[in-house]
Structures are given as structure tokens and as C-alpha cells.
């Protein structure tokens, strides 16, 4: 296990900044105001914890959801009838969207919540908010990237250390 290098840190932050706002800096903020206060750090071990592909790209797993949900910038709330299709790995269609963050651009990372504010996963918007308004009910508004269903579906590989 080792700290991240400069480029790795940059890649990581760039990825996280897709989903989060300026509150991301609270991630690395010290826990209290003392001079030698404890703080959270990023660590990498082989390809785990932070998964770097061979091209140096960074892939976020569903395990990063609690962190993203805390600092999310854009959000999508899905209705009760859309929860199951999303948790089984489907994209979000317009008919299932309960609420949207306003002024959300196209291809922007969003965190997906159920109507009672439980984070379900995250994805990327297919249309901007304005365009999505004109979309027909079966049109995809958000592409799925990770959902909580992966904890069951990818149980074997999600926490494997190889």
C-alpha cells in the first residue's frame, strides 16, 4: 500500500469532480482544528481500492457511492416504479424520473437517489435538463454506471484482490 503520485492524484480528483461539487475538499480536510489533527488519505494497493486500468484511467466502483452521495453536485431521484429496473442494471428512462437537479448539462455525472433520498447508484446524464423535458417517456435520460445491485451481481469479483 502506498500514497498516490501526482498524476494519480490528479486523475482521481478529476474523476471525483465529475460527480461532486466544491465540497470535495472536505474529503482531505483534517478532522479537527488541532495542529497535528488526523485526516483521511488516499492509498493504493495494486489495482484495488482505486482501480487504475493499464491506460492509467480510473474507474469508480459502487463502493465509492457513500462518498459521492455525500458530496454530490447533480442528483436524480427515481420513482418507486423505476427503482427495480435501475437496480437490475438498466438505464433510467424519463418515465421513471421523479425529480431532477435543475440546470444539469449533458454527459454530466449524477448520483441517483430513490424518492426517500437513499442513494442507489450513479451514472451520466444522456440529455441536459432542458432537452430531457421534451423527451418522450421511454427515452433514456441517464446512463447507468454503477448501482447497488452490483453488490449482489458482482459479489465474486467486487472484493477480490487479484
Amino acid at each position: 500500500m502506498r500514497p498516490l503520485t501526482e498524476t494519480e492524484t490528479q486523475t482521481l480528483f478529476a474523476k471525483l469532480a465529475n460527480y461532486t461539487g466544491t465540497s470535495l475538499k472536505n474529503l482531505i480536510a483534517p478532522l479537527d482544528n488541532g495542529p497535528n489533527a488526523d485526516r483521511y488519505v488516499f492509498r493504493i494497493q495494486q489495482s484495488r481500492c482505486y482501480y487504475f486500468t493499464k491506460t492509467g484511467k480510473f474507474r469508480l466502483h459502487i463502493t465509492a457511492l457513500p462518498i459521492l452521495a455525500e458530496h454530490a453536485r447533480y442528483k436524480v431521484w427515481v420513482k418507486a416504479n423505476g427503482e427495480m429496473p435501475f437496480l437490475y442494471g438498466g438505464h433510467i428512462v424519463k418515465a421513471h424520473v421523479g425529480r431532477w437537479s435543475d440546470d444539469c448539462p449533458e454527459h454530466q455525472g449524477v448520483v441517483v437517489y430513490s424518492m426517500n433520498d437513499t442513494p442507489l447508484g450513479f451514472g451520466v446524464t444522456a440529455r441536459s435538463t432542458q432537452e430531457a423535458r421534451r423527451l418522450d417517456p421511454t427515452g433514456i435520460t441517464c446512463f447507468r454506471q454503477a448501482d447497488c445491485g452490483e453488490y449482489l451481481r458482482d459479489e465474486d469479483s467486487l472484493f477480490a484482490t487479484s
Binding site: 501526482e6 492524484t9 490528479q10 480528483f13 478529476a14 469532480a17 466544491t22 470535495l24 475538499k25 482531505i28
Partner: peptide, 9 residues
């Protein structure tokens, strides 16, 4: 880290 973060932001 903060400088990198602010740059990225």
C-alpha cells in the same frame, strides 16, 4: 493535494 484539487475543480 489541495492545489491539485483546486486546479482540477
Amino acid at each position: 493535494m489541495l492545489t491539485i484539487l483546486s486546479l482540477v475543480h
